[in-house]
């Protein structure tokens, strides 16, 4: 019987050459090559930001970024994961903060050092407008900063490359918290729901779910999925 040879590609992981099957994500390629990812792997679904990767393509000076679990490995990729970026987190008490134009600068004064070089935006594997939200913070536009930073997965690449040594995602987290607590319109539905929970409206249902067996839960879940697909169609 003929051997079905898979096409392989060459990738360089931390400088060492490996042949890996084509069609793997960077993360799978790293594991295929024999590495065990202790840090640098998390949800494997593009949400947790653990697998931040920097790489260069053959014969290119450009430094590229990706989330290893979401990006296909390519022939000639010269890569490494950045499993951790040291980042200071300011201590603040959200209850005591008074929203003011320089509120972010009070906890993260380094944001004032931004020189608008746009390196952070170029380093974002989620294609967020990072420099724009930092600039919004500088300007005191908390709402815009919260909006633009919403999809951030805190992978750390922006902070690793910033010449002004800003930790973008921690500052953005403060912006989102201040926005949610002080600036966003309170949601009447949220308040209603919290009241219902406190009054015990959902206690029965939760008790039932908790005491349900695994088989019963699986059955109900599949039923619900089927119904949802029917509704969509």
């Amino acid at each position: 019987m003929e051997e079905n040879k898979e096409k392989t590609i060459k990738v360089y992981i931390m400088g060492k050459e490996h042949q890996v099957p084509e069609g793997l994500t960077i993360m799978k390629a790293i594991e295929y090559a024999g590495y065990k990812l202790v840090r640098g792997a998390g949800c494997r679904a593009g949400f947790c930001g653990a697998c931040a990767t920097v790489y260069r393509k053959a014969n290119e000076y450009k430094l590229r970024v990706a989330l290893a679990c979401q990006t296909l490995a390519e022939d000639g990729m010269y890569l490494t994961e950045i499993p951790f970026v040291p980042a200071n987190k300011a201590k603040y008490e959200l209850e005591k903060i008074k929203p003011s134009p320089n509120i972010i600068l009070q906890s993260y004064p380094e944001v004032a050092r931004c020189v608008a070089c746009n390196t952070c935006t170029k380093s974002c594997p989620q294609d967020l407008k990072v420099m724009d939200y930092i600039q919004a913070m500088k300007r005191g536009d908390i709402a815009r900063a919260a909006e633009l930073s919403f999809d951030c997965v805190q992978c750390g690449l922006c902070a690793a490359r910033c010449p002004a040594e800003i930790v973008h995602y921690h500052a953005a987290q403060l912006a989102r918290r201040v926005y949610g607590k002080y600036l966003a319109k309170p949601s009447p539905n949220l308040e209603k729901r919290i009241k219902e929970i406190e009054e015990g409206k959902y206690d029965e249902e939760i008790k039932r779910l908790k005491s349900m067996g695994l088989e019963e839960m699986k059955k109900r879940y599949m039923e619900q999925q089927k119904n949802a697909e029917k509704e969509e169609a």
């Binding site: 003011s100 134009p101 320089n102 600068l105 009070q106 004064p109 380094e110 004032a112 050092r113």
Partner: peptide, 23 residues
């Protein structure tokens, strides 16, 4: 820059200009 007294009252323009010259 982490030890600025009275940072709450300082406008961004002062901080930005200061950090450009002092850092």
């Amino acid at each position: 820059i982490g030890k600025i007294e009275g940072i709450e009252e300082l406008p961004q323009i002062a901080l930005i200009a200061n950090f450009r010259k002092n850092t």
